[in-house]
């Protein structure tokens, strides 16, 4: 989905709030949230693609205004409700207040039938796919061309895995793009590399 989470290349953001030796956690509840969703994954209640997708499905105002760990918390609660482990009523009774969840999921998809094995050095183009459900193709590479510089072992296909659909595992290709091909002259010169699933790619014409 072309969600609010797909931030790469979005303009208008200010300086990075950088500090030396920055912390990962700032409040005790944040570590508990991280632990609780890790426990749910360990117990097989949901997988990491479902977890990421439930964050992407947060209502955009909520996504942008929530802290990183509030997004984790929302995903965890949403999936536990959707999987029938808990109900929103129980959560709100226990929390003594509203417990906003993410919006419902659209259907996922399985592997793309027309995909081919690629190798380092191949010139490739990212297909112009618009996907309703979970997808790990950042919008800024859609329709763009680059060169394969690395090949991974096969991974679960996120577009299916994020929806509990059976699918073949696929390798990802580290594709090197020229930042000027992505954003013309409105970018700093650089090479931008993205790990792209096989289903998202075709040979450049």
């Amino acid at each position: 989905m072309d969600g609010m989470h797909d931030l790469g290349g979005k303009q208008g953001f200010g300086r990075v709030r950088y500090s030396l030796r920055a912390q990962t956690f700032h409040e005790p509840w944040e570590k508990r949230v991280n632990a609780l969703y890790s426990l749910a994954v360990k117990l097989g209640i949901f997988n990491m693609d479902e977890y990421r997708h439930a964050i992407e499905r947060m209502e955009p105002r909520h996504y942008l205004s929530a802290s990183y760990y509030e997004r984790s918390l929302t995903s965890l609660a949403t999936l536990c409700v959707e999987k029938g482990i808990l109900t929103q009523e129980e959560l709100e009774r226990r929390a003594q207040g509203a417990f906003p969840l993410a919006l419902p999921s659209a259907p996922g998809r399985t592997n793309v039938a027309t995909r081919e094995t690629l190798k380092v050095g191949d010139k490739v183009t990212v297909k112009s796919h618009h996907v309703h459900g979970h997808v790990r193709m950042p919008g800024y590479i859609r329709g763009k061309s680059g060169v394969v510089v690395g090949v991974s072992p096969p991974y679960p296909f996120p577009d299916a895995h994020g929806h509990g659909i059976e699918a073949e595992h696929e390798p990802t290709y580290d594709v090197r793009f020229d930042a000027r091909d992505l954003w013309s002259d409105a970018a700093d010169p650089a090479f931008v590399h993205v790990g792209v699933f096989e289903s998202y790619l075709e040979r450049a014409k």
Partner: peptide, 25 residues
């Protein structure tokens, strides 16, 4: 299915929401 209609009460704090899940687990 998440229900977005009953947002009449104030949103619970992140701590209270975390406590709720931990207690339910």
């Amino acid at each position: 299915m998440p229900d977005q209609t009953h947002q009449h009460q104030a949103t619970a704090s992140v701590e209270a929401r975390t406590d709720a899940i931990e207690a339910a687990f």
